[in-house]
Design a protein around this nucleic acid. Structure first.
Lengths: 151, 151
DNA sequence: TCATGTTTGTTAGGCATCAAACAAAGATGT
DNA sequence: ACATCTTTGTTTGATGCCTAACAAACATGA
């Protein structure tokens, strides 16, 4: 039977693993003067082409307010443009500028490297179990937040 | 064989799970005007009694600079004291004030609740596998950061 | 003794995140 | 048509985290 100690350890590891991964990304990106989430935005725009800011919110799983600040930075750096959308003045379409594309081509592909470093050579069954555990935990915690809304 | 997609999903889940857990804690603590890491400091001080600030850095697994700011807030709120240590003027001993103890007694025990919510009813073997995966990943990523130091 | 190295805590600057509140614009229903 | 609801993005203020650079104090060794 799993005990409190296991649960506490797993919670702590979840946090440490997240920050350890981000530290590696941040260190690699520092020379290019962009942060880890800024990299993810460029990543999605490079792979999928221009997209609505609203859709990127869902892809990145962050709040609108969070993305708004990230985009503001990328726009300030001249890497991304916010293009007005016809027929709906609320929405903004995001697309990389030429400078953004040029920077992207310079960046190494750390995503694969980091994932291989972190999870390579680990049994498939363990990876699958970890995904099950974190999926369920995330869903339950999210539901708990929603329920607590009406307080 | 585990593929890139699995690894990417797991990385994303690690982040989302961490923030989902923190959101639950923050929501519960907002009424008491303390943040989640501030809660962890009180937790350790309540359970172990006064301790050196340096030792708390290791327990919480954060940087000295990070803890310094957290403690500054708790001191400002009158919940914790930094007591000078004899024989070593660099160090500071942390202890809860009476107000800190009073607040602590008011707080519900969410740690158990949150862990039970997140991980309850999940097979022991899955929990153990998740711990293995995240332990290894965290260690490897940390080593990668250290190696990259000399750049 | 005294120069040098290490440890401890702080400050400054930056990124990422959230909640709350706002504004603008589209959508809906009567 | 018009009032109301919903959607989208922004701003503000907070927490938490990091690195880099500093200062103070301790430790060590020549």
């Amino acid at each position: 039977m799993p005990n409190k100690h296991d649960h506490s350890l797993l919670a702590s590891l979840t946090k440490r693993c997240y920050f350890a991964g981000r530290a590696v990304m941040d260190a690699a990106l520092r020379a290019h003067d962009i942060g880890s989430t800024q990299w993810f935005v460029l990543h999605h725009l490079a792979l999928s082409g221009p997209m609505m800011q609203r859709d990127l919110v869902d892809l990145l799983q962050v709040e609108r307010a969070t993305l708004s600040v990230i985009i503001r930075e990328l726009v300030r750096k001249g890497l991304v443009e916010q293009v007005p959308v016809e027929r709906d003045a609320r929405r903004k379409m995001l697309q990389m500028t030429d400078a953004g594309k040029a920077l992207w081509d310079q960046l190494p592909n750390f995503e694969t490297l980091i994932h291989a470093t972190a999870f390579g050579e680990i049994p498939e069954a363990d990876i699958a179990a970890a995904i099950r555990v974190l999926s369920i935990a995330t869903e339950r915690l999210t539901n708990l937040s929603l329920k607590g809304d009406r307080t």
